[in-house]
Simulated scan of single mutants.
Amino acid sequence: MKYSLLLFCMLLAVAGFTQSPKPIAIGHSIELDSKELKEKRTINIYLPEGYNAEDSALYPVIYIIDGGMEEDFFHITGIVRFNTQPWINRFPRSIVVGIENTNRRRDCTFPVANLDFVEKMGFKKEQFTSYGGSGAYIAFLQKELQPYIGSHYKTSGSNTLIGESLAGLLAAEILLKHRSLFNTYIIMSPSLWWGDGSLLAQAPSLLKKENNGKLNVYVGACSKEEDKRMYDDAIALANILQKEGGAGMKVFYDYLPNEIHSTMMHQAVYNAFKLIYPGTEYQK
């Protein structure tokens, strides 16, 4: 009898661990048919805890240029979720929008007369079979994606843009040429070498054309030993923004000497949120 009871309990325990597994959902995906990009784009969306389409709460939106599930959507959403937990409450609970890439080198770069400069950076011209499409991508953000998110989700009108490397170049171009599209820019190791540094050279004059409105800008740089040119460019961008960005622009420069180009993004985004929003629930 004793052994029968033991066997029965063991069978119950095994049965408890052999139930069908349930998926863990972090968000959902939609597909937009973009007229500006002339293609369909996958958009990954995270809605914060407590999101209810029927209540009156409105939420900031954080846009990730490299926002595919195999790119940066998953881990950045984790940082956002962590920082918006009620016991931390560094900034308001936010919607996260990740834009899946199809041709990153095309979408993140502006037109140039030739590609001679890429060889200085160790690339081959053949690696850039398509480029110069940033104008269409920016139009996609402004005319299609932001209006779609605004009309389908409960947004507050506060928008953050996150980009690193070539995506950082694109984020810098948007900041300099279309400043009002976002309230906060998180720019990491931007590839300002594109166009042989022409965007950086134009930055002072571009900033003077549009230097009204309050916004936060984080500029992060990884180890200068890995890439001195990109390190110098990040410092130069931060300095120009501080000097020419106007009274409403708050600039945060961050050097991450222990991170290389491929490892910096997670730590830099975390640092950016800490610098831009220094108070937590227990520090406010």
Rank of each mutant, 00 (worst) to 15 (best):
Q146N: 04
H178T: 04
F117R: 05
S198I: 12
N216H: 14
L181H: 07
E226A: 07
A203W: 01
G197F: 01
A167P: 01
A167S: 14
T109P: 13
F182V: 12
F117P: 12
F128H: 09
E144P: 09
R106C: 06
K208H: 11
W194N: 05
A201P: 02
T155C: 05
C222R: 02
F128P: 11
F110R: 14
L200D: 06
R179Y: 10
K177R: 09
L169H: 11
A113E: 10
R106M: 11
L166M: 12
G157Y: 11
L170T: 08
S151W: 02
G150V: 05
K124P: 05
S223V: 07
V112M: 03
F123H: 13
M230P: 06
G213M: 08
V112D: 00
K125E: 13
L192D: 02
R229T: 14
K177I: 03
A172K: 02
C222H: 10
D227Q: 00
Y148F: 15
P111L: 04
A113T: 03
I162W: 06
K209V: 07
I149C: 14
E144R: 00
L200R: 02
L145V: 07
E173Y: 00
D227R: 04
R105P: 00
S134G: 05
L141D: 14
S130I: 07
Q202I: 09
Y131H: 15
H152A: 11
L161H: 07
L166V: 03
Y185F: 15
T129A: 12
H152T: 14
I187Q: 01
C108F: 15
G197E: 04
K124I: 04
K228Q: 12
L175W: 03
H178I: 02
I149T: 12
H178G: 00
N114G: 01
S189I: 13
S130N: 13
L176V: 05
P190M: 08
D116L: 03
T109S: 15
N159S: 12
F117K: 05
S191R: 02
A136N: 14
F140I: 08
D116A: 03
P190S: 11
S198Y: 00
Y153S: 09
G122I: 12
W193N: 09
F123V: 11
L200G: 06
L141K: 10
L176M: 08
K209D: 13
N212R: 13
E164W: 01
K125F: 04
E164N: 03
L200K: 06
Q146M: 15
L199Y: 03
G220T: 04
N114C: 00
N114Q: 00
E210L: 02
R105V: 03
M230N: 08
A113K: 13
G150K: 14
L207A: 02
F128A: 12
N183C: 07
Q202E: 15
G163S: 03
Y137L: 10
